[in-house]
C-alpha cells in the first residue's frame, strides 16, 4: 500500500519524480565520479587517523532524497559500480553496487521528509554510513572474504561515520537543492510541496 494513497494526496507519478533529464543524469554521473576520485586521491592523503569520509555516499543521499526510490536505486547501483571498478579497489565487484542500490532505494522512500533540517540530514547520513559500511562487511563475510576482520571494522566504524557526518551538510544540501525537481521549476512543484507538507507539518514553507 503506498503512502500517498493512504494520505489521500494527489497521485504523483513515479516517472515524474524519478525521471531525470539528460543534463541531470550527466551531472549526477559527474558528481559521483568526482566524489570517488576526490575520495581516493585527496581525502585519503589527509593526515587523519582511521577511515575516510564517504563522499560518494553523501552525493547519493542527496540524489535519492530529491528524486525518490527509483532514481535512488539506479543512482546507487551506478555509484556502487564506480566504487567496485575504480582502482585501487580489490574487493568482489558488485558489493558496493548491491549495498548502495539498496541504500538509494530506501533513502528515496524517505522522500522529502527531512528537506528542512540540517541536523536531520546529519543524523540520516550517520545512520546511512553505519548501515552501508556494515552491509559491505557482512557481504564480504558471507562470501568468505579473508579480509573480513571484525576488530578492524570496530576500529574504523567511528571515524568513518564521524568524517562522513561532518561533511554531510556541505555535500548533501547542495546536491539535494540541485536535484529537487520543484526547485527546477518542473510540474512536480505543487504536488511535491503539498505532499511534503502533509508528510512533515514542521517543514518550513520556504524550504518547499
Amino acid at each position: 500500500m503506498s503512502r500517498n494513497s493512504m494520505l489521500g494526496t494527489p497521485t504523483l507519478s513515479a516517472e515524474r519524480l524519478g525521471r531525470m533529464g539528460i543534463t541531470a543524469i550527466l551531472v549526477a554521473a559527474g558528481l559521483v565520479v568526482a566524489a570517488a576520485v576526490i575520495q581516493v586521491s585527496v581525502l585519503t592523503r589527509l593526515p587523519l587517523p582511521g577511515a575516510t569520509a564517504d563522499l560518494v555516499l553523501l552525493v547519493l543521499i542527496g540524489i535519492a532524497l530529491a528524486r525518490g526510490p527509483l532514481t535512488g536505486a539506479l543512482a546507487g547501483f551506478g555509484a556502487g559500480l564506480v566504487l567496485d571498478l575504480m582502482p585501487p579497489a580489490d574487493h568482489a565487484v558488485g558489493r558496493y553496487a548491491f549495498v548502495l542500490c539498496l541504500a538509494g532505494y530506501l533513502l528515496g522512500q524517505l522522500g522529502p521528509r527531512i528537506f528542512g533540517s540540517t541536523f536531520g540530514l546529519m543524523v540520516l547520513s550517520a545512520l546511512t554510513a553505519t548501515g552501508t559500511f556494515l552491509a559491505f562487511v557482512v557481504i564480504g563475510a558471507l562470501t568468505g572474504d579473508p579480509r573480513t576482520q571484525w576488530s578492524t571494522v570496530a576500529d574504523l566504524l567511528p571515524s568513518a561515520v564521524l568524517y562522513t557526518t561532518v561533511l554531510a551538510p556541505l555535500v548533501v544540501r547542495p546536491v539535494l537543492t540541485y536535484f529537487r525537481p520543484a526547485a527546477r521549476g518542473e510540474l512536480g512543484l505543487v504536488i511535491r510541496a503539498r505532499k511534503a507538507r502533509q508528510l512533515n507539518p514542521l517543514a518550513r514553507r520556504q524550504e518547499l
Binding site: 503506498s2 503512502r3 500517498n4 494513497s5 497521485t11 504523483l12 507519478s13 513515479a14 516517472e15 519524480l17 524519478g18 525518490g68 526510490p69 527509483l70 536505486a73 539506479l74 547501483f77 556502487g80 567496485d84 568482489a92 565487484v93 558488485g94 558489493r95 553496487a97 548491491f98 542500490c101 539498496l102 532505494y105 557481504i139 562470501t143 568468505g144
Partner: peptide, 29 residues
Amino acid sequence: MQPSDDRRTLRTLALLLGVSFALITLEAR
C-alpha cells in the same frame, strides 16, 4: 505514487540487486 509505479520501482530494484548479487557470486567463485 501509484501502485503500478511502486511495482515498477520494486521490479527495477529487484533487477539491480539481482545483477549485483550475480556479480558478487561470480567473483566469489
